[in-house]
Amino acid sequence: MDNSLRSEGNQLNVQQMIEERKQKKSIGERIEKIVPWFLLLCASVSVLTTVGILFTLLRESIGFFSNVSIFEFYTGTSWSPWSGHYGVAPLIGGTLLITVIATIVAVPLGLMSAIFLSEYASDKVRRTIKPVLEVLAGIPTVVYGYFALTFITPMFQAIIPDLGIFNALSAGFVVGIMIIPMVASLSEDAMNSVPNALREGALGLGATKLEVVFKVVLPAAFSGIVASVVLAISRAIGETMIVTIAAGATPNLTMDATQSVQTMTAFIVQAATGDTTFGSTIYYSLYAVGMTLFVFTLVMNLIAQYISRKFKEDY
């Protein structure tokens, strides 16, 4: 009661104070007007990044193609920039070889993991295994490269004696291990979103879990699974450090996995660490190769997005 009296005495009138401060509020109003523009500016950074990537790849590639014919670049089969041969086929071949090996490793293992986690594992098991599996995706690629070179290659050499120190097999294998969680996690999400009623319907007819998986879950989750595989492949195409460390630096148009190959990404690293002078043909070739790589991954990503957008319409 004393307090209410005191506030009476002090003339505590909040509305009056608000009124007084309203005069100063023009600053606040200006902030209110400026903020959205500042935020829009920040949001446009991501667009500028894309524009910047396209701009730099295109401009420097055009610079490159004024020295080397685009025809030679895409049809030549010999890549040795230091002696003037710019046929990109060996680099693309190397990239594809690594990607194929990685896909062969990751897709079956990833899908089977997804089936186990989504259809067989108890909730508790899933909640333990999934995060651990995802740790695989968080390991720096340079660590995978080290692992491939110092552990996987010697291990494979015990089986295949004439395997070189640098070879496509170890690199591709480890890239595959790295992308397992990507396939597993995204496919599991797709399988999880298959309504339980479908499963129960089939189980009620006396189907075993396995039959439910193959006849109900996999068909229903098919587009989600395909999208996850496509994304994982795109990731394998762009992978750099593992192949740089473990696959070597030999541009080699071969399908022999025991040989050393060079991928597009590995060439970019090699050229950037060497004494490449700004403005030289090799400097420009970085961008022509980068452009080709970018187109490959962009196409894969667009396919994945297209598939998963269609997938959303299904339910």
Binding site: T49, I268, T297
Partner: peptide, 14 residues
């Protein structure tokens, strides 16, 4: 969404 799928090395070129 697409930027997230661009290989990191391309950001290096940028």
């Amino acid at each position: 969404q697409n930027l997230a799928g661009v290989p990191s090395i391309v950001f290096g070129l940028l």
